[in-house]
Design a protein around this nucleic acid. Structure first.
Lengths: 259, 259
DNA sequence: CGCCATCTTGATCAGGTTCAATAGATGTGG
DNA sequence: CCACATCTATTGAACCTGATCAAGATGGCG
C-alpha cells in the first residue's frame, strides 16, 4: 500500500478551472451544479506563490478575500494588546482560510506562510454577490464556521486540562487524521511548523516540545527521518490512547504499520 | 448615577410579544421590519423556567431549538471521551444559545442552568424555514458565530499564555463589559457560577481562584458584598492593566467609583 | 437546627518554565 | 563548493507557579 505523502502535492497550475482542479472536492465541498461551479470559477484569481514567512494578512486588515490553499501551509495567530501571540490554527492544502473575516469586514487574525504556498483567491465582492444568490454557499460557510467553533473548544479543553504529553499526542493524531482524510499518509508527513510554533500553539515551551519528541522516540512511538521535520508515527494506538481524542471512533485503520 | 443591577432582571412575562419584549434589542439584533418580527414572534415558544442545575441539552443531542435567555444564566461545556469536562462559556439574559448546533443537527456542547432560568424557545424547523426566506437572519447568525470564534480564540490565548491573576482579571473585565453593554452596572454584579466552574473555565484549581480573590480583596481591587457571589469591582484600572484585554479602548468610563 | 455543599487557607509537591550551553541545520557570499 | 553566520533544535540544571492534599470555615437549605 503506497500512499502519496504530503510533499508530493503540486500546484495544479494557474490556468486550470475549479472543475478540473484536483482539490475541488476538498476545497469548497459545495453541492453546486456545473453552472454554479463555473460562476465560482470565473471569480477566482490565481496569484503567484507566497514565500515562506510572508504575511498573507494581518489582524485588523480590511477583509478582501477568502483563500483556498492549493499547496503549502500557513499558521494563523491572534495578538494581544501587549503583543503576545497565540497561534490558533495551522492550515494545509485543500483548506479554506479567511472566512471569519467576512462579517466584520476585518481579518480577526494574522496569517503567515510556513513555506512556499500557492492559493486560489476568492475576492469578497464577488463572493458576497454569489452567496446572496446561492443559499447552499452560505450554508457551507456556516458549516465550516460551526466546525471551527467546535475545534477551538476542543483546543480550550486541551489547553486547560491536558498534560504536555497528551497535548503533543493530540496534535499528532489530529494532523494524521487531517492528512488521511485528504488522501495522504496518516503515519508519515512533514511538520512544516517550527518547534517554536508548535509550543506556542500547544501552550508549551519549545524545550518541552523537544523533550517530549525525544521521549516519544525513545518509546518508539514515533521517529524522525532525515530531519527534525519529517515524522513517522510508529505506534498510533499509543498516540490515540494518550490523546483521549474526540474522533477516535473514526481513526484510520491499519495505521500501525506504515506504508 | 444609579444603574439597575443584574438581579433586577425579571422575566418579561409569558404572553409578551418579541416586539414588546424588553430584550428585543439585545436578543436578536435583527434588522427585521415589523412584519418579519411578527413572523419570528409567531414561532417562538415560551416555556416554564428551568431549575438550577437542569440540563437544557446534552452534547450529542439532536438539535431542536435555539434559545434566547430571558432571565438567569447557564454554563456550556464540552466533554472529552474520557469524561473530562471543559466549560467553554457562560451565558446571561439577552444572549442566544444553541446556534452552533444548527448545522450538524446535533448540539456540540452540554448546557446547564446555573440558577432558575427562563428562555424563549425558537424551534428549529420554523427557524430554518424563516432563515431561508430572510438572508439577514442568516447573516445575523453568521455574525454571531464569527464573534464566537474570536472569543474562543481569545480564550485560547488566555489559557495558553496568561498567569492565574491575569486570567481572573480578564474574566472579571469581560463580564463587566458584557453587563455594561446590556445596561447593567459594570462594577457590581452577581457571579452565578461556583468557584469550581470558574476554575474549570479558566484552567485553574478551585483553590487558586479562592486565593486570587483573597489577594485581590487585600489589594482593594474588589470586594464581596454579603456573600462570596456578589462582587464589586473597586479598581477597574488595575483590573484592565492586569487583564491585557482586547477591548480596553472601549472600556466603560467612570467605572472606578461605584454607583 | 443541623447537614452537606461550597469556599477558604495552609503545607507540600510536581510539571513545566527558564536559563544556559551545545549541537545541528540552513542559507549566503566569496 | 566550502566557510562562516544565523537560526533552530536538543539537552541539562535550577527554579517557580499553580496543583494537590488536608483541614477548617462559611453558608444555604431541608
Amino acid at each position: 500500500m503506497t500512499q502519496k505523502i504530503l510533499s508530493t502535492v503540486k500546484n495544479c497550475g494557474t490556468a486550470v478551472s475549479c472543475q478540473d482542479c484536483s482539490l475541488s472536492s476538498l476545497c469548497l465541498p459545495l453541492s453546486l451544479d456545473g453552472q454554479d461551479i463555473d460562476r465560482l470559477d470565473a471569480i477566482i484569481k490565481r496569484g503567484r506563490p507566497f514565500q515562506k514567512n510572508h504575511t498573507i494578512w494581518r489582524q485588523g486588515d480590511d477583509f478582501h478575500s477568502v483563500l483556498a490553499i492549493r499547496s503549502g501551509s500557513v499558521k494563523s495567530f491572534v495578538t494581544s494588546p501587549s503583543g503576545e501571540e497565540q497561534i490558533v490554527g495551522f492550515h494545509f492544502a485543500g483548506e479554506i482560510i479567511g472566512l471569519n473575516g467576512l462579517f466584520n469586514k476585518k481579518y480577526p487574525i494574522t496569517t503567515v506562510a510556513l513555506e512556499t504556498t500557492t492559493v486560489c483567491d476568492i475576492p469578497y465582492d464577488s463572493l458576497d454577490a454569489l452567496a446572496d444568490d446561492l443559499p447552499e454557499l452560505k450554508d457551507q460557510i456556516l458549516q465550516s464556521m460551526s466546525q471551527e467553533i467546535s475545534e477551538d473548544q476542543q483546543m480550550m479543553l486541551l489547553l486547560s486540562k491536558k498534560t504536555s504529553d497528551q497535548r503533543l499526542a493530540t496534535f499528532l493524531v489530529s494532523l494524521s487524521e487531517r492528512f488521511h482524510r485528504r488522501g495522504y499518509s496518516a503515519s508519515r508527513f512533514r511538520l512544516t511548523m517550527s518547534r517554536n510554533d508548535l509550543g506556542n500553539f500547544l501552550g508549551l515551551a519549545v524545550e518541552t516540545i523537544s523533550r517530549i519528541f525525544s521521549k516519544f522516540q525513545q518509546q518508539e512511538i514515533l521517529r524522525f527521518i532525515d530531519s527534525s521535520r519529517d515524522i513517522e508515527l510508529l505506534n498510533m494506538n499509543k498516540l490515540y490512547e494518550l490523546a483521549d481524542y474526540q474522533d477516535s471512533e473514526n481513526k484510520p485503520c491499519g495505521t500501525r504499520n506504515v506504508s
